[in-house]
Design a protein around this nucleic acid. Sequence first.
RNA 1: GCUCGAGUGGUGGAAUUGGCAGACACGUACGUUUGAGGGGCGUAUGGCGCAAGCCGUGCGGGUUCAAGUCCCGCCUCGAGCACCA
Length: 912
Amino acid sequence: MTPERRKPYPFDLIEPKWQGRWETAGTFHAPNPGDAGFDPSKPKYYVLDMFPYPSGAGLHVGHPEGYTATDIVARARRMQGYNVLHPMGWDAFGLPAEQHAIKTGEHPAIQTQRNVDNFRRQLKAIGFAYDWAREVNTTDPGYYRWTQWIFLQIYHSWYDPETQRAEPISTYTGADPDSVRLAFVAEVAVNWCPDLGTVLANEEVVDGKSEVGGFPVVRRPMRQWMLRITQYTERLIKELDGLDWPESIKLLQRNWIGRSEGAEVDFTIAGSGQKIPVFTTRPDTLYGATYMVLAPEHPLVAEITTPEQRTAVDDYLLKTGRKSDLERTDLAKDKSGVWTGAYAVNPVNNEKIPVWIADYVLTGYGTGAIMAVPAHDERDWEFAAKFNLPIREVVSPEPRLGLGGESPCSAQPLECFGGEGYAIHSGPLDGLPTVDAKAEITRLLEKQGLGRKTINYKLRDWLFSRQRYWGEPFPVVWEGGAHRAIDESELPLDPPALEDFKPTGSGEPPLARATDWVRYSEAATRETNTMPQWAGSCWYYLRYCDPQNAERFISPEAESYWMGGRSQVSSASPSIMESAGLPRSSDEVAHAELGPVIGEEESISAAPAGSVSDSPQRTPHGGVDLYVGGTEHAVLHLLYARFWHKVLFDLGHVSTPEPFQKLVNQGIILGEDGQKMSKSRGNVVNPDDVISQYGADAFRCYEMFMGPLEQMKPWNMNGVEGVSRFLARVWRLAMEENQAGEWIVSSAVQEVEPSSAVRKAVHATIKKVKHDIEALSFNTAISQMMILVNALIPATPRPRTAVRALLQVLNPFAPHITEELWERLGFDSSGDGLANEPWPTWNEEFLIEDEVEIPVQVNGKLRDKIVVKKDAAAAEIEQAALASAKVQEHTTGKTVRKVVVVPGKLVNIVAG
RNA sequence: GCUCGAGUGGUGGAAUUGGCAGACACGUACGUUUGAGGGGCGUAUGGCGCAAGCCGUGCGGGUUCAAGUCCCGCCUCGAGCACCA
């Protein structure tokens, strides 16, 4: 015996062997339509992982959780007769590489390459069935060339309110096209992070700190590139409906977009006549407005402030201006504000109400001004209480009579009522339920030109420029204060070579240091900002479909096949470009059902009659069929990518309005201590260690056996051990050691008919594993296979057909050991491995027992079990149940009042 | 504060949607194997009880022949949003 611990089976030899074979044979390469080896008779299935940022730390066990799940689905679908697209790549632009470059002076590309190589090595060691020929890297010129190209499409477009879609800017007939482009430059108050030396999108700021690094973020007006995502708010909300996504993620997106219906009401400043519109979702409470509040940054503050109040107002502005976003939200409980000295006139009753400024009113939402109705809004209530402002009740929770009339209510309500009810003290609205009061007052205001129905959104335009080196340069130059796009033929626009990657600190991007690069011509200079990291990930799923294409970001044929909802037969390229009509209806997408594609292969004990083999179905919708990744991108990547996709759809470059049809979030994996894994806690588990100790198959199976994919769960090495024991039992099912200590095929495996119990277990397993994979319930699939193995171990001789079926269904989970046994047992007649075998079929007949054991309850308590024929009549079952000695024991002295018989399930006798 | 989601043995988790709670594993105990074991095989393992039996899915009510599952009210934990007018 070797001094070191013996391996339960030689995974250290067989895993590299099969990984090498798959690579040389190109087993998992998916040809495109038109390529050699492409089979047009099969339907497509696109399984996508969220590609990783290749960090220096390498893979941790969280990454492969989702990757293993998609790998199992991809392998199973392949066996079930689909053309499967299952690619991997690298989201390689980003801050960590740049910060490393700043520290060491090493070019970010060098470090990135090193990290990518390490990630690729780690992923290959797990045995994933990726089509590595489709690998993409967002930092390759051949990739970011098209990121820049897509930016140009966005730049050259505008959102036509008539057609409700993006159109070429040439169709815009107004005077200033730059004012409507989907990519535009604006001087806005942005999130400036001094420590990172860059601006950040709203989505990248969490609690007033940068999402990356946790550095403080301040508001600062700067001139930046923006993308007009707000034009797509309605579609981004509405088109969520048809998606097979977790409701919680849809909700997160809806909340982030933050649609609210209401009205804009024009108040007038007394004296000056200056109009100030306010946004309210409760126009029905207009009669209860007792003061008005402007955001401190509101442009009219200076103009309306009276001389007497000037010092107080200036003081307040100074104080709030100094506050960071964090402080402003942190101090939310304590309201602050100051009176401007001005009065506004309420348009419905001409009442003069004071105008205050307060930082609880935000400049970025609505009109930056509100009417305050303290009786019916908590925040206004607090503010009014603090500054002693009048409170007037205009909504009653109950319909009340006799409280109408013009005269305002003088009694101060005791508490704030924010709910819906019935209007009171509100002139023409009196008595109306809130819903009707809203409609009525809006109608009245519109009639008099004093207000209008409005829909407001929290979503802001996407701040799209960063002051970084390691990102895509903008294909834009400046001349005479105006921007213009460079020509497509000048792409890719590479970033300049630099020695010093440090941010300049002033907000001037590092690219500005490359003076030669910046000079574009005598008169023009290049844009020196770069795109945010999200740019590359907005469309990588498209590039996978056609990664080498040097002519286009994706060919229409590849797009139509892998992403399209249409039949690939009618996908002649012109139809894409001529998509002048509205988005295609899903009816047009329907196509002929395909017949069974799988050959009626002998799978297990010969019984094709009644055997079940669901033939693959073409998905009725387009896009990625399954997308698995973490929740952290719910409002970042997933919103941005949908936006880009819709623009590309409008412009006719892609054929579906949504990119990801089905989305699943994997839960995070915690350390063994139940804490989040982190270097500082020292509880990080490295896949490399697990693989060298237990093998890749055990690693994969454990990741899936831990629990439901979507759940958060702690890592436990003992669990890996358990799964590894299971795989060792599978090995010994087929193999035994000879005198010399070599593994040889077990003599117990023989060409015999399985017993009906074994046959049932086999067929039940084939069925359950298939369904569980479809439901992404991998943990229960594995336990079913454990049950089968437990049933097979004591069966000697072991029927070859049973072992064969087990290897087939286990293959997607543990591909190496199953391939090896498949080969050693001589099942591999074709010579191209188990991965190319079809999924086995099962026979429902074998799942049904002649006799069933059913529980008998007395008053809901289990007392006995009886065995009856599977199709026994209810009366017969009742007889048998009542005849049971145990039942009689519990019913003596009582009368049987009722007997509930659920045939095949249970009997419950009610006695008392 | 608001909005979601979740609470089941010592542990991770099952339970075909109202029908035998605790599948499958981990751990533990005992037995067994050619000597050994971080190996293999077997048995047991929700709690209380010698037992018959009783009690058991966060807590309290309810519906039902029957509730982990449905309804009402709480508690705890997790996630997201957070002055969004």
